[in-house]
């Protein structure tokens, strides 16, 4: 949270495992959706990290976000099911549960390509290729603050796109 990338990556990886377990216990009959939800919660945690206060328990904060996203998922699903024949949604009730990450059905990489250039390029250079903000600014011709804003807005837009598909 203080900007230490390595510590943050460790935190997110552990959170991923934790979330996978949390969701598999709660929606075992919907194992196909677990990985999508894990990704959505990770993005929500990242985009909402400014709402965490270090003097409060981290687990309460993370759980509140995970519960909120799970409830949101149930609501969206209930809406969808009221429109569709629900029978085939319950076929996967016997799906085996394992600890390997299932493939996510929504491809964030493809969603990333749909973002406008001034959001996509900063994310690609800073986040995927590991360039610094200054290098990215030089490469794209954007100002340094535009690069930072682009990353920030791009990740928010990505979260919104994920939610729209859900």
């Amino acid at each position: 949270m203080a900007g230490d990338a390595l510590a943050y990556q460790t935190f997110l990886s552990e959170l991923t495992r934790h979330l996978r377990g949390f969701l598999r216990r709660r929606i075992p009959q919907l194992s196909d959706d677990v990985e999508d939800l894990v990704q959505e919660i990770l993005l929500a945690v990242h985009n909402g990290r400014h709402t965490y206060r270090p003097d409060e328990p981290l687990t309460a904060w993370v759980h509140a976000i995970a519960r909120y996203k799970l409830m949101d998922f149930f609501r969206a699903r209930a809406r969808r099911e009221s429109l569709h024949d629900p029978i085939d949604d319950y076929i996967d009730i016997f799906a085996v549960c394992d600890d390997e990450p299932a493939a996510a059905r929504r491809d964030i990489g493809k969603l990333l390509e749909q973002l406008p250039d001034k959001q996509r390029l900063p994310i690609q250079h800073v986040k995927l290729e590991g360039l610094s903000v200054a290098e990215t600014a030089q490469l794209t011709g954007l100002s340094e603050s535009a690069v930072k804003v682009g990353v920030h807005r791009g990740l928010k837009a990505l979260a919104a796109k994920l939610r729209a598909i859900a």
């Binding site: 949270m1 203080a2 900007g3 230490d4 990338a5 390595l6 943050y8 990556q9 997110l12 990886s13 991923t16 990985e35 894990v38 990704q39 990770l42 993005l43 990242h46 990290r49 400014h50 965490y52 990450p101 493939a103 996510a104 491809d107 964030i108 990489g109 990333l112 994310i123 800073v126 986040k127 995927l128 590991g130 610094s132 903000v133 930072k148 990353v151 990740l155």
Partner: peptide, 18 residues
């Protein structure tokens, strides 16, 4: 995109939170 890749995407180049 795999979840692991998303994690490293989010973690790389993070700036301190305001």
């Amino acid at each position: 995109m795999e979840t692991d890749l998303l994690v490293s995407l989010l973690a790389s180049g993070v700036t301190p939170v305001d």
